[in-house]
Design a protein around this nucleic acid. Structure first.
Ligand code: NAD
Ligand code: NAD
Lengths: 230, 230
DNA sequence: AGGCACTCGTGCACACGTTCACAAAGCCAG
DNA sequence: CTGGCTTTGTGAACGTGTGCACGAGTGCCT
């Protein structure tokens, strides 16, 4: 669209924080806040103010010195940068415990990721309705992806079936995958995969608990020194 | 226990990969594999072999040059380092869509994180049984945490209630929190918080999709050049 | 109009993480 | 016992991310 801008590459760390800023800015906008400083935003996001400024500077110079950032405009710019100016329909593979929770979760569509379809390999699941969407057979996946122009797939099958699910998604034309199965997926280089692994998160917490117990017990629970943490 | 060793601090990046190695090693052990090289493990984990060696070197020198690592022994060492030598009961706050999926998910207890209890503020939910556990009222949280010696809490309430849930968990004595609500929790410094945010993950994928579309269309789907990605 | 208070944008130094490259160490064959 | 092959463990170079510090704009008040 614009003549020249656009070949900036935004650091991964920044990309992962932009959605957080975006949500906070949206909340602020709802509360009628029109302008916010990097310090204010940093406080709400639980990060350093300099980091906020540097992150936002990758989008361009959209702040006003001495004043701060105009909330509505910043929301617009972040949304544009994240590609949230239009919806991204997603397809969910696996209609078990997790697939049902995801399908029944409204916040999905609200945030621009409507569920274009849910598929399962189990005929017993096919035909049931979850969150307003009927479960279809996995053989219909290519058709769903094609007709609904789906780019993002969600893998919510058991680990043993996750690679198969990913293969089918890729073959159907999906280019980004969100994987909930505790498995390292093997996909073509061009496909973007992100993994959400419950067990890993819990084990990281376990590590810190164990370490806490092992160290000297100067665990003086400082009950009010609060710190925001992402 | 041992006299001196133990005041090594393991880098965060390494801690977050150890659970992945652990799962893979477990699978290998089940298949009867007794020994594995850093290269083999790296392949399965989708990372660089040097990284595997450096990660494992933080645990000590448990490999044998010219041979590799003994799978069973390595499993033992990683489990010990992660504090997985005993169970860590968890308590889930919020018995909605997500809380139900978590409770109904067996892989939780299997991996050493049995569900010690689920609580909700809604009387309509209290008393129902999920995955073998009866939902109890949130006022019983302190008692559950105390009697079951729970250190880890899971927040699965709507965003608006997440801070309240976290406050109650902290007050009850929990020291680690896994937060599924799209909210930055404010907790005492001593409390470890990890966040799993669906919307953030999807928006990161969206960013890459958008970028893909914006760039020159040399998206020559190289259909076989496969790469494992965590 | 001038000065002042405020906040952005960014150069720089430092910390952390990744990858390469190679010596040291172990195994095995002859 | 020696030589050759394999694979670890780690120093060093490089890349990425973080946070400070401060110059440079901007708005407001007098
Ligand atoms: N439920 C949770 O809270 C939870 C938490 C963390 C991780 N996970 C992970 O999420 C995944 C799903 O968990 P779940 O509890 O929903 O499991 P589930 O067994 O309840 O559901 C899995 C569904 O996938 C379907 N399926 C199996 N093979 C398939 C295939 N090849 N193609 C399409 N569909 C297929 C099954 O028919 C079933 O309906 C698992 O990998 C699990 O480890 C789940
Ligand atoms: N369902 C999903 O797939 C999904 C996906 C991503 C994120 N999330 C997030 O997970 C959280 C839960 O989602 P959900 O779909 O289960 O919501 P839900 O509305 O189905 O369930 C929330 C539950 O929390 C209970 N609750 C409310 N306030 C409480 C309080 N103060 N103390 C204790 N319990 C309280 C409610 O009674 C309800 O049972 C939300 O923050 C949501 O954004 C859910």
């Amino acid at each position: 669209m614009a003549p020249d801008r656009n070949r900036r590459r935004i650091p991964d760390a920044t990309v992962s924080r932009l959605p957080v800023y975006l949500r906070i800015l949206g909340e602020q906008a709802d509360e009628g806040v029109e302008s916010i400083s990097s310090e204010g935003l940093a406080e709400l996001a639980g990060v350093n103010a300099a980091k906020v400024r540097k992150d936002l500077s990758y989008l361009g110079s959209y702040g006003t010195r001495g004043v701060g950032y105009e909330v509505a405009y910043l929301v617009y710019q972040i949304r544009r940068e994240l590609g949230l100016t239009h919806d991204w329909p997603v397809v969910i593979v696996g209609a078990g415990n997790l697939g049902q929770a995801l399908a029944g979760y409204g916040g999905f569509g609200e945030r621009g990721f409507p569920v274009a379809g849910i598929v399962d390999i189990d005929d017993a699941k096919v035909g049931t309705v979850l969150g307003g969407t009927r479960v279809r057979h996995i053989d219909e996946l290519p058709q769903i992806v094609a007709t609904r122009r789906v780019n993002i797939g969600v893998v919510a099958t058991p680990g043993a079936a996750a690679q198969d699910a990913a293969d089918r998604l890729v073959k159907a034309g999906v280019t980004s995958i969100l994987n909930f199965a505790p498995v390292v997926l093997s996909v073509p280089r061009a496909i973007e995969v992100r993994k959400v692994d419950l067990a890993v998160e819990l084990q990281i917490l376990s590590y810190h608990e164990q370490r806490r117990a092992g160290g000297a017990i100067h665990a003086v629970q400082n009950g009010n020194g609060r710190s925001a943490s992402a």
